[in-house]
């Protein structure tokens, strides 16, 4: 009981610190980042959109890691982490699509375009949603964990396609300006603020992931005990 209380306090403390850091980074980006020559003030949504997109893609790599762990080690803890990854990944993919749409309206003139990057990000959201529906539609147990892990592996393999799609297909979306051969094309001040926002988003996602994984492990324990009691 004492451990649980300690853990609650620790989770709350870390969460508060992470939220403060994230709020600071967003405030700094909105208030102090320089204006963009071409897009004016509207580009500031980038400080939310780009970190969300990177976090969404990063979630799939963490999902890959935990899926492999589940398959090789038969770990139910890793299975909980995998599901938590998919939930966090789905949330960030949804945020990416929404903020991208809001950004697209003033810059492209449309809320949605069947552009390669947008379409593949939507596919990622559907895959995350499919993964979550799949895990919820099966009875808990090692078999569900194994099947979900197999699905997680396949989903993670789709991610390189999303990343490379901008280069492969004709697209409206701007090419990568941060991670590209020949160095970044972004203004150094904007880049620094973007990195700050990215770190804040990573910490926030990490905290959410941790929180959710703990909840899922507790849920699994309760399910197991109620199953034994029957």
């Amino acid at each position: 009981m004492i451990d649980a209380k300690k853990q609650d306090r620790l989770t709350f403390g870390i969460g508060l610190a992470v939220l403060l850091f994230a709020s600071f980074s967003w405030f700094y980006a909105l208030r102090f980042a320089p204006s963009d020559e071409a897009q004016g003030e509207v580009y500031r949504i980038m400080y939310f959109h780009v970190p969300s997109a990177i976090t969404a893609f990063l979630s799939s790599f963490i999902l890959l890691f935990f899926s492999l762990w589940t398959l090789f080690k038969r770990s139910s803890v890793a299975a909980s982490w995998s599901k938590a990854c998919a939930e966090v990944g789905f949330m960030y993919t949804a945020i990416t699509l929404i903020t991208g749409s809001i950004w697209g309206r003033p810059t492209w003139g449309v809320w949605w375009e069947w552009d390669a990057r947008l379409t593949t990000t939507l596919i990622l959201a559907l895959l995350y949603a499919g993964y979550l529906i799949f895990t919820n539609s099966m009875a808990p147990g090692p078999q569900r964990d194994r099947m979900a892990a197999a699905l997680g592996l396949i989903i993670a393999i789709d991610i390189p396609i999303i990343y490379k799609s901008v280069e492969w297909w004709r697209t409206l979306h701007q090419p990568p300006s941060l991670l590209r051969s020949g160095g970044s094309t972004m203004d150094p001040e904007m880049r620094s603020i973007l990195f700050l926002c990215m770190f804040a988003m990573f910490f926030l996602a990490g905290w959410l992931l941790w929180l959710r994984a703990i909840n899922l492990q507790l849920q699994a324990k309760i399910e197991e005990q109620s199953h034994q009691a029957r």
């Binding site: 559907l126 949603a129 539609s137 099966m138």
Partner: peptide, 13 residues
Amino acid sequence: LRSNAKQILYPLL
């Protein structure tokens, strides 16, 4: 095979 929602899940995935 073991999913309760295979009719919708199969095309979704």
